[in-house]
Structure formats: structure tokens, C-alpha cells
Write a protein that binds this DNA or RNA. Structure first.
Lengths: 226, 226
DNA sequence: TGTTGATCTTGAACGTGTTCAAAATAATCT
DNA sequence: AGATTATTTTGAACACGTTCAAGATCAACA
């Protein structure tokens, strides 16, 4: 018995993607929570159980969307990173790509960011989303490294993860931003990015040394194994 | 028709609290998600529907626990604030009280912090939890004000809310902290508190002026109405 | 082609949170 | 007390996500 996802089959693959498309359509119409598996199945022209033959759960449908998104975004991000110069430009390459790509499905993204529990499959911190997360963190690491930003060795190793966290916070804010056209998020994005760059610039002044030391100790301990 | 919560009745009040106690017991035994309303009702010696006569939903049971906790913690916190001197001591008064009080129910707290959606009743950002949140923010404001910390007027008005956010982050980390005895949280608490105090101390140096300006603009815009 | 085994499809059934009409009980009024 | 109203209690029923045994379809091979 071969797992359906792995199989190269044609008909099967078509049914699977018909179910996924139906799901995304129903999610868009009703929102994730109000969407029912029965309606998704009907929309896809299959029995309820069929959806579960191709996807483990309702959550798994969102996960499939997330994985597909990442597969499309990641190469685009890597390409943009090639042509960016400053750290600011690099960070913008990553973050803006995500905003633009997810914009049509901003509300569906809530299903992916609404869970803080690292054990929940859809949490940004779960093992299920680990592959995507690590890929993203890599991009941030590359952005930082190649832009030649200088940081004390006690915090430098964590910069990729910290920048990923920063971006996650922006996205979270965005998902629930009720201001027109999410203008508050745009503001948060612009201002915090400026602050970040500025902070890195002044980070080297001697009076901030003790802060670096404590931050380094903290990061080492918190990230020690997980 | 008088709402049952408002009524001063004796028998009724007793049933209500028996249901709440049963709920907390079952939550503790099975965890919030695996606990069923039917088991809670049985444990309380009532029919399933009775739980819904006294509480709007399963979530509402957690909310009742949260409100009861706050009713007990808030006076304790205010009292401790009377005897604290430095800002650090004041912040410790608030935060440590919460950790100590919630420790026996740490995992149940996950039901309260697992939702980032401000529209979810149990979210720390929801209108349902607003009363508790505002009370807490008041404590932080008082702590900051009375300790005479000097901040530029562009960011000073937001200090209470920012400190509340900081504490919320600590609690969130704590709830999911899998290290033995949550030692990572303790570390995060100690180090970040030191960093916070240190940051406020050096905040006045001229080179950081631009950061204050941007931060002020950001906070004003983000908090403009909500 | 007929047979066998893998793949796919079905829809009934389960346990869940929740609702609600009906019944039981308590409180109030005449 | 008796009647009337308000409060409390019940448990069956609903819609949901999910499971699964049974059947239908397809692929490979003799």
C-alpha cells in the first residue's frame, strides 16, 4: 500500500486537488471555522469520507495550502535575495513577498496563526510546520549573513530565528488587523523595520554592552535544545 | 427574568459552583480539550443541559475560573504594590503573584492563552477578557508611575500596556514551557527583567533619540482607537 | 479474458459541544 | 390553600469532525 500523497497517479492526484480547491473555496466563502467537511465534499463532488482519504483532517487542508504556498514563495524569496543589497532590502524581500502572496487568503491564514500551542499541528511552532519554519529561518539567516551585519558573537547565531519571530509577529498582527486596508500593519511594518535597522546600527556603542551579555545568556539557555 | 449569575439565590449559587468545581477537576484530570461536558455534568451530579443553564459554553467555565482568579489576585497585587519600592520590585510583585497563583493550574491556562484571535472569547485580547485586562494594565501603569521612571512623553503613555504585553508573553512562554520545573521561563523572566530595567536606565542617552521618536509614532498609530 | 490484489469511494455511525421543548420544582400572589 | 408565575432540571436531538467496514473500480498478470 503506497501513501496516496506519494503516488504519481493521475486520476487520484486530480481528485485530491479538486478537494483542496473546493476546500479553499468554501473556506473563502464561509471562513475556516464555519466551513464544513460535508460542504467541501459536496463542492468537490465526492462523499464526505473521500476528503479524509486524501487529507487527514480539516486542519490538514489548511496545511496543504500552507505547504503549497511555501513551495511557491520560497524560490521567489531566494531569487529576490540575490538582488537585494542592504539588510533592509533583504528583509523587505522576504516579508513583502509573504504579505503579497498571502493577501488574497489573509483570513484563512488565521487558521494557521491562531494557535500558540506548539503541540497543535497548525501552530507556527509545531513539528508539522517545522520544515517550512526552518526554510524561512534559513532565508532570514542568509539575509543577515550576506548583508554583513556585525553583532556580538553571543547573539549573532540567533539572528535568523529572531528575525523570523519578528516577521511572525507582523503576520499575526496583520491577520487580525481590522483597520482599512490593514494600514496599521503597514505602519507597524515600516516603523519597526526602521527601528530594527537603527538598533543594529547603534548596537555597538559601549554602554549597551551589558545588554548584549544578558541577551546572549538568555538566548543560549532558551534555545539550548529546542 | 433575572440572569442566574446576578441572582443572590442560595441553592442555585451552590449548584453553579458545584458545576464549576467539577469542571476544574475534570480539566485537571483530562486536560481542557479531552474533558467532556457530559463527564463534567455527571461529576457535578446534574444533567448535561444543566451545565449550560449556568454557563454559556465550555469556554465559559474557563472564563469563570479566570474571573475568580483575578478577583483573588488583584487585591493581593495591589497590596504588594504598596510595599514595593523600585520598578523591578513592583513588576516582580505583579508577575510573581500571577505565576504563583496560576502554578497549580498552569496547563488549564493554555485554554486562555492558546487563542490569538481577538474575537475569540478566551483570547487575552477579546472584549470578554477586557475587564480583567484593563485591571491588570492599571496595575502596571501604577507600578510604572509610582516608581518614577522617566520616559519621553511620546512613549510614556503606553508603558502600562507595553508592560502588560511583556507579562503576557512571559505567561504564554510559561504555559508551554516543557523544561523541568519550567526553568527556562524562570530564566526568561530574570534576564528579560534585567534587560528591561537596564534599557530604561540607558534610554535617555542622545543617540537613542531617533528610536524614541519612531516608537512614539508607532504606538500612537497602533493604539489610536483600540 | 478471468482472477486477484491494490486503490478509491461510499455513507452510516460515533463522540463531541450545544440547543431546546418539556417537565419538575420553587416562589409569589390572591 | 390554590393558582399562577419564575426558576431549575432533564435528556433527546442537532450539526459537526472524524472513523470505518463494506463495496466499487482499477491494474496487473495468467
Amino acid at each position: 500500500m503506497v501513501l496516496p500523497e506519494v503516488k504519481a497517479g493521475k486520476k487520484s492526484e486530480e481528485t485530491r486537488s479538486r478537494i483542496l480547491e473546493a476546500a479553499l473555496a468554501v473556506f473563502k466563502e464561509r471562513g475556516f471555522e464555519k466551513a464544513t467537511m460535508r460542504e467541501i465534499a459536496v463542492q468537490a463532488g465526492v462523499a464526505t469520507g473521500a476528503a479524509y482519504y486524501y487529507f487527514d483532517s480539516k486542519d490538514a487542508l489548511v496545511m496543504a495550502f500552507y505547504e503549497r504556498s511555501q513551495a511557491q514563495m520560497h524560490p521567489a524569496i531566494e531569487a529576490k535575495l540575490d538582488h537585494a543589497r542592504t539588510l533592509e532590502e533583504r528583509l523587505r524581500s522576504i516579508i513583502s513577498t509573504k504579505f503579497e502572496y498571502f493577501a488574497p487568503n489573509r483570513k484563512l491564514l488565521a487558521a494557521l496563526s491562531s494557535h500558540t500551542d506548539p503541540d497543535h499541528p497548525l501552530s507556527p511552532f509545531s513539528t508539522e510546520t517545522a520544515a517550512i519554519r526552518l526554510q524561512d529561518i534559513d532565508s532570514f539567516e542568509r539575509a543577515a549573513k550576506e548583508s554583513g551585519v556585525k553583532l556580538p558573537p553571543s547573539v549573532a547565531p540567533y539572528l535568523g530565528r529572531l528575525l523570523w519571530m519578528y516577521q511572525m509577529g507582523l503576520i499575526l498582527f496583520w491577520v487580525y488587523d481590522k483597520s482599512d486596508s490593514q494600514r496599521k500593519t503597514l505602519l507597524l511594518y515600516e516603523k519597526t523595520l526602521k527601528m530594527l535597522i537603527l538598533t543594529l546600527k547603534v548596537a555597538a556603542i559601549p554602554i549597551l554592552r551589558p545588554l548584549h551579555r544578558i541577551a546572549g545568556e538568555l538566548l543560549a539557555a532558551v534555545y539550548e535544545d529546542g
